[in-house]
């Protein structure tokens, strides 16, 4: 049984069919990649899995249990964390405070009113993770002063602090410098060795192909190919999806 399954998910916004017949399985302990041209529905699929969008057709399952149309809070409490394509952090909180927001995964609200923000052990854990992604020395800085790349790292650390079993990354390498991309890939591999499962949306092919065990390609709201990177790389349909078919080119050329 796959850890995370999407089965025949369909979604339309008004007349626009964003997703049609989208199926995807993520095996426990794997790093799965999800690629496709812009607008093919990758982020929409993420939003559906994590409870930000609702669907009428299709099913999402986590460990075999349906989590279709759940809320973001509940999905997160189950152990599915995600980052956003345009990084979203709490700009007016300090970096370490950003981390502490996520540590209350299993806490009742009454306790949260009465307890001070962040116990010593939570602080230590937050600092460990900030160190892990390489921004520990910025812990007291307001998150709004971080650079784009640092925000991406903080975004990832925020998700990690609650110790989720699956992490969905939406374009983690987009817009950050090559050195940082290398660090990011290294960290993802390390976490994967510790047992974390990843589903990664990314346009950087080198990043995806070198990192992922299995890659799924989407085009026009459908999952068209799924397989190991080598197989997907040479698949005719994938090339068509990215470059357009020859007939289409022929039509446009003259």
């Amino acid at each position: 049984m796959a850890l995370l399954e999407m089965e025949d998910v369909r979604k339309s916004f008004g007349g626009l069919q964003a997703l049609s017949a989208c199926s995807l399985e993520v095996e426990e302990g794997s790093i799965a990649g999800l690629i496709g041209p812009n607008g093919s529905g990758k982020t929409t699929l993420f939003n559906i899995v994590t409870g930000y969008e609702r669907i009428r057709e299709g099913a999402v399952r986590f460990r075999g249990t349906a989590i279709t149309n759940s809320t973001p809070e509940r999905v997160f409490a189950l152990g599915i964390g995600r980052t956003f394509q345009l990084t979203r952090i709490f700009t007016r909180l300090s970096v370490v405070e950003n981390m502490l927001v996520a540590t209350q995964r299993h806490e009742g609200w009454l306790r949260s009113v009465l307890r001070p923000a962040g116990s010593a052990s939570e602080h230590r854990r937050a600092m460990e993770l900030l160190d892990f992604v390489g921004i520990a020395r910025l812990a007291d800085a307001p998150a709004g002063t971080l650079s784009y790349g640092q925000r991406k790292l903080l975004d990832l650390a925020c998700v990690l602090v609650a110790d989720p079993s699956v992490i969905l990354l939406d374009e983690p390498a987009g817009g950050i410098n090559p050195t940082l991309i290398g660090l990011l890939a290294q960290r993802i591999r390390e976490l994967n060795r510790q047992g974390k499962t990843f589903l990664i949306v990314e346009h950087n092919m080198e990043f995806v192909m070198s990192l992922c065990h299995r890659v799924t390609v989407m085009d026009f709201g459908k999952t068209i190919v799924s397989g190991p990177p080598d197989v997907v790389r040479s698949d005719r349909r994938v090339l068509d999806a990215y470059l357009g078919t020859e007939e289409a080119d022929g039509d446009e050329a003259p």
């Binding site: 930000y52 956003f84 609200w109």
Partner: peptide, 29 residues
């Protein structure tokens, strides 16, 4: 201001949807 609840409230001020994604029960808070 110093409680975890206060931190959650401040997180809602900065980005409510992100706070939900990090497990903050925004409605209740």
């Amino acid at each position: 201001r110093r409680s975890r609840f206060g931190l959650q409230t401040l997180a809602i001020r900065d980005d409510e949807d992100r706070a939900r994604g990090l497990g903050v029960q925004v409605g209740r808070v």
